[in-house]
Computed example of a mutant assay.
Amino acid sequence: MNDIRYSRRTFLVSSGAAATWLALPAGAQPAATGWRPTRPVRLVVPYPPGGGIDIVARFIAPRMQERLGQPVVIENRGGAVGMIGSENVYRAAPDGLSFVVASADTHSINPHVYADIRYNAREFAAAAPIATLDYMLVGRPGLEAGSMKELAELGKKRELTFASSGVGSSAQVVTEALKSRYGLKMLHVPFGGSAPAAAAVMGEQVDLVMLPIAIALANRSKVKVFGVASDKRFEGAPDIPSLAEQGFPIGLEPAWIGLMAPPRTPPEILREVNLIVGEIVRDPEAKKRLTTLGLAPYTATMEEFAAHVNAEYDRWGKVVRAAEVKADSPK
């Protein structure tokens, strides 16, 4: 799932004249615009401090500041599974001074799970990708299965329980996709984050959980690892096979992380931010840091990124609807 296949997608561009992603001619090449902010720039993290998205934001912020010539300030606006911070940027002025550090959870999944969401995810302007987040499927130490094949056989004989970081989380949706595709009997047990979900599996309270790779690797000796939930192995743990190579592809790409701007943000602003963030992410230091966080660096033009976000909105939406994942917005 780390291999993002743009060749089969229509490239789209976020236009300042419209609040949706519009098609660009094939082969259009990015160019520096020379835009620079005249005041401090906000990177709104829609989660509390200390989480993976927050760490990524704090890594790129000072490097953006060096290149933009203005302070780049992290603003944590956690709550409602990322919807409060996302709405804040959705309603901000389209002047290049506000970006949300968005993800598949906030922009590809939440819109399909929460009927009362107060922003239109498809109206945001896609600025720059940063990384992709993959998962590992792990089980409790005493689970009666030692391989993915044995786990699938067990899951067809009796009901297994699986934890997640919350209702509508990408961890739940990835597991629901696995459950649906292979006809497994599985009961969802939501927790308030990846850490308590992992603790429940290590404590033999729940059978399985899809964990962000960094958390899975940190607790590798305390769980049974069944594989990476993607088409390819993770570079930081090359000895762990993917579910796909074991004969159990899920059909979802890794969850994306990137900067999204308010609707109607001018293309020249988006393009400059895209070039700057791409330069940061391509640096070897960034790749090393992201890999330690269980992430894969992700660079693309703003057209490619918009196309990817658009396709992932539809892809994750299909899985959410098939699994009938619905919830009232948390307060």
Rank of each mutant, 00 (worst) to 15 (best):
A198W: 09
E304W: 02
A26D: 13
L259Y: 09
K287R: 15
A80L: 04
M83E: 12
H112N: 14
I240V: 04
V174F: 11
P30Q: 02
A125L: 03
E253D: 13
I250Q: 11
S165Q: 07
V320A: 08
H308A: 08
P111Y: 03
G69C: 03
A92L: 07
K185P: 04
E272Q: 15
L270S: 03
P266R: 06
V101R: 08
V309I: 12
A311K: 09
W35R: 00
F234Q: 05
A197R: 09
V167N: 01
P263I: 08
A127W: 04
I55N: 06
V138W: 02
M202I: 14
S108H: 12
L178F: 13
Y90D: 01
G227K: 06
S147C: 09
R77N: 08
V174L: 12
K149M: 07
V273A: 06
N219H: 12
K149C: 08
V101Y: 02
S14V: 01
K157Y: 11
L187I: 14
D54T: 06
D328P: 01
V73T: 15
T299L: 05
S103G: 14
V277P: 11
A80R: 08
S170P: 04
M210E: 01
T38S: 14
G96T: 00
A171E: 12
V325Y: 06
A125V: 05
R63N: 03
L259M: 09
R39M: 06
G34N: 05
V101G: 05
A229Y: 04
V225K: 08
H188V: 13
R42Q: 09
L22G: 03
E75R: 09
A131K: 06
A115F: 13
V81A: 11
G203W: 07
A152P: 00
I240Q: 12
E235R: 09
W21N: 00
E324D: 14
A127G: 01
P330F: 12
E144S: 13
T38R: 15
M83V: 14
D3P: 11
V81M: 15
V45K: 06
L143Y: 03
E87V: 05
M302N: 09
P40M: 05
L208G: 04
E272M: 06
N76P: 00
V13F: 02
Y298A: 06
V189Y: 13
V73A: 02
S98T: 07
G16I: 05
G142Y: 05
G79W: 03
N76F: 01
K326N: 05
P263N: 04
P111S: 14
V113C: 08
A300P: 04
K149F: 13
F162M: 00
P284V: 04
G146E: 06
E253T: 12
D54H: 13
Q172T: 11
A323H: 07
L290M: 12
L295S: 00
I4H: 04
R233C: 10
I257L: 14
G166C: 08
K149E: 15
E75G: 10
